[in-house]
């Protein structure tokens, strides 16, 4: 009996030790990642780096046009995806209402499933799709417009799912009260649903921005990789993520610069996510008071 207890204790110790070791390994790996980027990349980051055009295939100069192109791509994607996703989420929300018919509820369930599937499609497949549809069939060529549209297609399912969840935040009792008062749908939305939902709507959109910023594979075949300042939406231009890829793969001696660009990209993504989380927490605290 005692031996058994001893054995068990030893086993517990062993499990704990292995778990700690594994965790340390993970922390070390990611520490190495962040350390590498910080040590090799932070030195280059400066005001000039942000605004100057890249020179010598990106070995010197900055990321001026690239930052602009990245911003334009994300803005295009948001502009295309947010209205569509918001309306689609409204549809899902309505279908969940008590007075909605059975057929409609089924349709909504099917739509949710479809969105889940589309949301899990690899981004490079969206790249193929965008290349075939926007670049070739629509004749936009490799351009910011084609890249933005491809990103928008990618974001629609993610945003709709996020918005759908946000809209569900409105308590059923309040909705029922609104229905009892014969509120119009628009009025219910305006006075009952949105006050509960908007922080999460915003957070969903911001997270989608972070996702779009990080995207590379979908842009490779749709917005091309010209590293210059774009002057129109039909110009080809590279995003920051594509710049990292090109420096890492195609530029001998481009590592240091790739580190800077990667660090910048990471900082942007993390800052955006942190801002979304922080804002959400703040709103929740305020609401709680």
């Amino acid at each position: 009996m005692r031996e058994l207890a001893m054995g068990r204790r030893a086993m517990e110790r062993a499990v704990a030790a292995v778990a700690w070791a594994g965790t340390l390994l993970v922390v070390a790996a990611f520490g190495a990642l962040l350390g590498e980027l910080l040590v090799r990349g932070a030195g280059e980051l400066s005001w000039r780096y942000l605004v100057e055009a890249p020179r010598d295939a990106g070995r010197s100069g900055g990321v001026g046009g690239i930052v602009v192109a990245t911003g334009v791509l994300v803005a295009l994607a948001l502009a295309g995806a947010v209205p569509l996703a918001l309306l689609a989420a409204l549809f899902l929300d309505e279908a969940g209402a008590a007075q909605a018919g059975r057929a409609r509820r089924r349709l909504a369930a099917a739509l949710r499933r479809v969105l889940d599937v589309v949301g899990s499609v690899p981004s490079i497949v969206f790249g193929l799709f965008g290349n075939a549809l926007f670049c070739r069939a629509f004749g936009w060529g490799e351009s910011l417009l084609a890249g933005g549209a491809t990103l928008a297609c990618m974001m629609v399912p993610l945003l709709t799912i996020a918005f759908d969840e946000a809209l569900q935040r409105a308590p059923a009792a309040e909705r029922a009260a609104a229905a009892a008062c014969a509120f119009s749908r628009a009025a219910t939305l305006r006075h009952v649903v949105l006050p509960h939902a908007w922080p999460l709507l915003l957070a969903g959109a911001v997270l989608a921005v972070a996702r779009a910023l990080a995207e590379t594979a979908a842009l490779l075949f749709t917005s091309g990789y010209v590293d210059r300042m774009p002057t129109s939406l039909l110009d080809s231009a590279r995003s920051l993520s594509v710049h990292v890829w090109d420096l890492a793969l195609n530029v001998a001696g481009g590592e240091a610069r790739a580190c800077s660009a990667a660090l910048l990209l990471l900082l942007l993504v993390v800052a955006i996510e942190a801002a979304a989380r922080g804002a959400l927490a703040w709103l929740r605290r305020r609401a709680g008071r």
Partner: peptide, 10 residues
């Protein structure tokens, strides 16, 4: 949140 291209570069 680390973009996959950054991981690949690492």
């Amino acid at each position: 949140a680390v973009p996959s291209v950054v991981l690949g570069f690492f």
